[in-house]
Design a binder for these strands. Structure first.
Length: 489
RNA sequence: GGUCGGUUGGCCGAGUGGCUAGGCAACGGUCUGCAAAACCGUGUACGGCGGUUCGAAUCCGCCACUGACCUCCA
């Protein structure tokens, strides 16, 4: 196939043909969550984006090692006045052990990712489990001369580094601009320059999470874990590093600098960044009160939500936008996605019931080509989905007898449809409503049977009464040629 | 203030210099005792003003609006 996977590389700002470092194998590292709160919608975007990439790379035949970290050392709380660790702060508020908080929210994250049908990564390393590796990186950077110790902390010397290597190449920042934009501030004495960032930080007395080192009892800098863990599991050079656009600067820029300072060369070959999510056109953020947790989406228990949304609706909706575009969540858009996905899934059942004809009046080969071309074009899932809706029309037309399909084409269609809808996009039929015990089902079926009898007797009053009462109770009664079916909304 | 991005029909959301994105909604039809559901069909949109071009939503400039990150913070 001359149609090759192209990936948009943030570093070059271009789409590039993806060629792995080692033939047939791909090393993929993605920045995972900081586990100090419940998993929310913002966590789902990168998870689904790189899950799609992971699935597609495997589908293409690559052996993929996918590393996605858990950040459990914690970053500084955005709105905290003190330089206190997010996780330590939360721990004090909740009167829990830091690792207890970490475990609680890690479990929450895992549970929600499973609901979203996000595959587990190959390795999910924790920052707290790699303190020694991080200290080793600090030593290497110090030995290379790109860091200095100051009052028990170790800082990365950005200006020194920038003399030897380009700094800011990923985010398009120029060091001169950053310097001229820097104000004089108090409390910067420890750093030689405001641009410098900590790679080891001495712990304040109230700071609970701390480890001994030759500089101080402290903790590693927040950019360091990814450098240390990607190197440990994927090597000094690896293929793809992904994460949210919000991490581009300073996090990823710092990662590049740390790896280059420590090893003398670049670590990452392709940088990928997924865009952010907005809610009713507004940025999603905790301070704005619109950071809806995934649990709330799934249960519908949030003031902004009109109803509960199935995890698959969230997943599908994310896939209907390209990963590098912002995506706006609203009840209207979600409900539109919900209906569209139902149609897509229903067509797969219709497809399984199709009978082949001698000849095809439809072109499955072309459809397949278009679907793969879309995926190869920087994972353009919205385009691929558009083509799948063309497949829906084809399927329904065949079922209607307006088109015909050969046995060979039908197999190809099934294979294509199943590959994209289930294997790559990772969609599943929504879970059946709970309380679906057998007696309950039988009772509803009985009511519908009574209605069927009434209809046979042209007793429309009784038939309509049953239907209307069931509707009032929240059931949806659907009459089809093969009889009535129902579901609970 | 700096850097980068966005502005597409009622809503969401793709996109290439000229050739239908797609979904939802809406409307029309098929089906139905009626309805719902399901299925089929229909829509000619691209922030404003200039410019380049035979031709621009797609390229360039300016303006407006908007987003992200940074400018305080490990």
């Amino acid at each position: 196939m001359d149609n090759q996977l192209q990936i948009y590389n943030t570093l070059s700002r271009k789409k590039e043909i993806f060629v792995p470092l080692h033939e047939g194998k791909v090393g993929l590292y993605v920045c995972g969550p900081t586990v100090y709160g419940k998993a929310h919608l913002g966590h789902a975007r990168p998870a689904v984006t790189y899950d799609l990439l992971f699935r597609y790379l495997k589908h293409l035949g690559y052996k993929v090692r996918y590393v996605r970290n858990i950040t459990d050392v914690g970053h500084l709380a955005n709105d905290a006045d003190e330089g206190e660790d997010k996780i330590a702060q939360k721990a004090r508020l909740d009167e829990l052990e830091p690792m207890e908080v970490v475990q609680l929210y890690t479990n929450d994250y895992h549970k929600n990712m499973e609901k979203l049908n996000v595959l587990s990564p190959s390795i999910e390393p924790r920052a707290t489990g790699h303190i020694i590796e991080q200290i080793t990186v600090v030593e290497k950077i110090l030995a290379a001369g790109y860091a200095y110790e100051s009052q028990g902390s170790v800082y990365f010397d950005v200006e020194k580094y920038a003399k030897d290597y380009p700094y800011g190449e990923l985010s398009g920042r120029k060091i001169e601009d950053m310097q001229s934009n820097t104000r004089e501030l108090d409390g910067q004495d420890e750093k030689h320059s405001p641009l410098d960032f900590a790679i080891w930080k001495k712990a304040a007395p109230e700071h609970i999470m701390r480890w001994p080192s030759r500089w101080s009892d402290g903790f590693p800098g927040w950019h360091l874990e990814c450098t240390a863990m990607s190197c440990k599991y994927l090597g000094e050079t690896f293929d793809i590093h992904g994460g949210g656009m919000d991490l581009c600067f300073p996090h990823h820029e710092a990662e590049i600098a740390q790896a280059k300072a420590a090893n003398g060369h670049d670590a990452v070959r392709y940088w990928m960044h997924n865009n952010m999510i907005t809610l009713n056109g507004q940025k999603m953020g905790k301070s704005l009160g619109n950071a809806i947790s995934l649990d709330e989406f799934f249960s519908g228990e949030h003031a902004l939500l009109e109803k509960a949304y199935d995890p698959m609706t969230i997943r599908f909706f994310m896939l209907t936008a390209h990963y590098r575009s912002t995506l706006d969540f609203s009840n209207e858009a979600l409900q539109a996605a919900e209906k569209g996905m139902e149609r897509l899934l229903k067509a797969s059942e219709t497809m399984n019931g199709l009978s082949p004809a001698d000849k095809s009046s439809v072109n499955i080969g072309e459809l397949k080509e278009k679907c793969y071309a879309a995926m190869n074009d920087d994972l353009n899932s919205p385009i691929a989905i558009a083509h799948l809706f063309d497949a829906v029309k084809i399927i329904n037309s065949i079922a209607d007898g307006k088109e015909s399909i050969s046995a060979e084409d039908l197999d190809a269609l099934k294979s294509l449809y199943n590959t994209f809808v289930f294997d790559l996009f990772g969609l599943k039929k929504p879970e059946q409503a709970e309380g679906s015990n057998e007696a309950f089902n039988a009772a509803i079926d009985l009511l519908l049977q009574l209605r069927q009898d009434a209809k046979a007797n042209k007793d429309w009053a009784t038939a309509d009464k049953i239907r209307n009462e069931l509707t009032a109770l929240g059931f949806v009664v659907k009459d089809t040629k093969d009889g009535a079916s129902w579901e609970l909304k």
